[in-house]
Amino acid sequence: MAKIGVVTFPGSLDDQDALRAIKLTGGEPVSLWHASDSLQGVDAVILPGGFSYGDYLRCGAIARFSPVMAEVIRAAGKGLPVLGICNGFQVLCEAHLLPGALIRSDRRTFYCKDQQLRVESTDTVWTNAFAKDQEINIVLKHGEGNFQADDETLRRLEGEGRVVFRYLVENPNGSRNGIAGITNETGNVVGLMPHPEHNVDPLVSPTLDGVGFFESVYRFVNAKTPPSGTCPTPSSPDSPSSPSSSCALVAGPNGGAPATNAQDDGIGKPQDDGAQKVQGE
C-alpha cells in the first residue's frame, strides 16, 4: 500500500482532511511534523492547506524554511512525488520547487466555492489517472491564489505542457492564463490552489473528482514496486527516488511504454486510457 505523508506545519488546517482522503482512497496515511527532518520513508508527500505560521509575512514564506522542508526539497529533486494544495502550493513556490508566486486574489476577499477545472496535463505523477482535457469540479477556498509569473516563465510553462489545471467558467482570483495548478519539469511536483482532498467522500463532497489525484499517485507508486521485487523499494528512507524506467515499464498497469515526457527516473504517467469518471451525488 502506498504510504503518503502529510506535513503538519503550525497553522496547517486541511492536514486531517488530506490524511482522511488518503485513507478513504486506499492509501496509508502518515502524519509528518514540520520540526522533524524525517520523511519516515513515505512514497509521496502532500503539503496541505491552511495558514502555516499564520501566513502573516507572505503565504508559505516561513514554512519553506522548516526542517521538514529541507528534506522535502531534497527528496523532490530525486523524484519523490510532492503535491502542494493551496497553502502547500504557496510553500512550493516559496521553496522554488515550482515557479511563480501566488498573490492576493483580485476580488480581495476569501472565496469558497465549487470550482470547475480542466485537466490540461496528465503527464504528472498526480494526474495520470485523469483523461486529458477532462473537466472536473473541485472545492476552492482561499484569499491569496492569484498565480503570477513573468512572461518568459509563463511562456515556458505553457509551452512545456506544465500547466496542469486551468479554471473554467470563472477565474476566481485573477490568475494569469486562468492557471489553477502547475508542475515541475519532471512531473513529480504538482501545486494547485483547489482542494482535491475535499472531493473524495460522497457524504460531504460536492463531487468525487478528487479521487483521481490519489489514484494517480498510487498507480505511480505501485508501478515502481513490481511483484518480483527486483526493483528498489520506494519506501527506503534514504532513497525516495524512483527505480529505473524498466521497472516502471514492467509494472505499468497496461504494460505500455513510459509516458511521453517522462525523463530520467521514469517519472511520468503510466499508460492511461481509463479516466476516472466518478461523479458526486
Binding site: R20, G49, T109, F110, Y111, C112, E197, V204
Partner: peptide
C-alpha cells in the same frame, strides 16, 4: 457573505 467562509475544512460538513 457565506462564500467568504470556509465550509469544507475538517471534512465533516454534511
Amino acid at each position: 457573505v457565506t462564500d467568504q467562509y470556509d465550509r469544507y475544512v475538517r471534512g465533516n460538513s454534511v
